[in-house]
C-alpha cells in the first residue's frame, strides 16, 4: 500500500517554495476610516490608516496604482489611490457611491475597520517624465487617479517643465478637490477648468474639454518633443483627447491613460477586467496609448 502524504502548501517548504506568496494572496491589511470628506453630492474622500504600525510603514505605492478595498460581507472593489505616494500619511481614496460596497461605505462611521490589499497594477512613470512638460487631462471622476501623480510632481516641482492641468466636469457642483486648486496654482501649475454647464457662481469657461486642449496645444512649444500627457476620464473622452494629442505629434508612448474595469481579484486571475485579453489589473490600469491602440475594445 502507498499512502500519499498530505501536502500543506502554506507550511511545506520542500514541496512548495513560494509559500509566502501563497499565504499573502488573500491577506488584507486592516485599516480604519480616520476621516471622511464630502467632495460633491456623490463623491467622498476617505482617509484610511492601516492599523498595524509595521504594516503601515511598509505600505508604499506608486502614483496610478490601486488597492482592493473590502468591507467584510459587503463587497470588495478596486480604487485608485489619491494620496501622495511620497509623504507617508493616510491612504486617501475618492469614492463615488454607485454600488453595494460604495453605498455601504457612505453610511460607515469614522473608526470603521476595512480591509485593504495591494497596491496593485502599473503606475504613471513620473520619474521618466522629469525634465519634460506634462499635460494632465481629466474628465469628471478622471481627476481621481491623477491626484497621486500631481502630488508626486509637486514634491519635485523644479525637476519638471510646464505643468498643465486641463480638467472638465459636467457642472461646477461636480468639480472635485476644489480646495486644492489654489495650492496647485501656487506651485506654478497652469490649471484650466471647464464645465459643460455653468451656474450662477461660475465665471470660468463653459464648453468641451477639447476646446481648452486645442488652445493649450496651440500655445505649447515643441509639444511633440518635450511633453508627456496623462489622460483619464470617461471612455468617449479618451478617444477625442488622445487623437488630438497624436495629431499634435505627441508620441503614443508618451501618452498615458488610466483605464477602469470591474475587478474581482486584482491579481490577474478572474478575467473580469480583461480588455481584449489583457488584464487591466496586471498590465494596467495605467497604459501607454500605444498599448491601448493594440487592445481590442479598450476605449
Amino acid at each position: 500500500m502507498v499512502k500519499l502524504p498530505f501536502v500543506d502548501v502554506l507550511a511545506d517548504k520542500k514541496n512548495y517554495m513560494r509559500k509566502d506568496d501563497l499565504a499573502s494572496f488573500e491577506y488584507t491589511y486592516q485599516a480604519e476610516i480616520t476621516n471622511v470628506y464630502s467632495l460633491t453630492k456623490t463623491e467622498k474622500l476617505y482617509q484610511l490608516q492601516i492599523i498595524d504600525p509595521v504594516e503601515r510603514a511598509r505600505f508604499t505605492f506608486k502614483p496610478g496604482q490601486f488597492v482592493m478595498l473590502e468591507l467584510p460581507g459587503i463587497g470588495e472593489a478596486p480604487f485608485s489611490i489619491s494620496s501622495s505616494p511620497i509623504r507617508h500619511g493616510d491612504i486617501e481614496l475618492c469614492i463615488r457611491a454607485v454600488g453595494n460596497l460604495t453605498n455601504f461605505l457612505t453610511r460607515s462611521p469614522r473608526g470603521t475597520r476595512v480591509g485593504i490589499s495591494g497596491p496593485f497594477g502599473t503606475d504613471f512613470p513620473v520619474e521618466e517624465m522629469q525634465g519634460h512638460d506634462i499635460m494632465l487631462i481629466a474628465g469628471g471622476l478622471g481627476l481621481v487617479p491623477l491626484r497621486a501623480p500631481i502630488f508626486a510632481v509637486l514634491e519635485n516641482r523644479s525637476r519638471y517643465g510646464n505643468i498643465d492641468i486641463i480638467y472638465g466636469a459636467r457642472n461646477p457642483a461636480e468639480l472635485l478637490f476644489t480646495y486644492q486648486y489654489d495650492m496647485w496654482r501656487q506651485f506654478d501649475i497652469d490649471l484650466n477648468i471647464i464645465v459643460d454647464q455653468g451656474d450662477a457662481s461660475w465665471n470660468g469657461p463653459v464648453g468641451r474639454i477639447t476646446s481648452i486642449l486645442e488652445d493649450r496645444i496651440q500655445a505649447a512649444e515643441n509639444i511633440g518633443k518635450n511633453t508627456y500627457a496623462i489622460v483619464c476620464g470617461p471612455p468617449v473622452m479618451f478617444k477625442f483627447v488622445c487623437d488630438m494629442l497624436i495629431k499634435a505629434h505627441l508620441p503614443t508612448q508618451k501618452i498615458f491613460v488610466s483605464l477602469e474595469r470591474r475587478m474581482h481579484c486584482g491579481r490577474g486571475k478572474c478575467c473580469r477586467c480583461n480588455i481584449g485579453s489583457t488584464y487591466t489589473c496586471l498590465k494596467g490600469p495605467v497604459f501607454d496609448y500605444w498599448s491601448v491602440m493594440n487592445m481590442k475594445e479598450a476605449i
Partner: peptide, 21 residues
C-alpha cells in the same frame, strides 16, 4: 501557468494541485 505561476499564485488552486497523484 495562470494559477500557480510567478504572479500571485492562487493558494486555493495550489493546495489542491499539489495534492494530486
Amino acid at each position: 501557468k495562470v494559477l500557480a505561476g510567478k504572479i500571485y499564485p492562487d493558494p486555493y488552486y495550489a493546495a489542491k494541485r499539489n495534492n494530486m497523484f
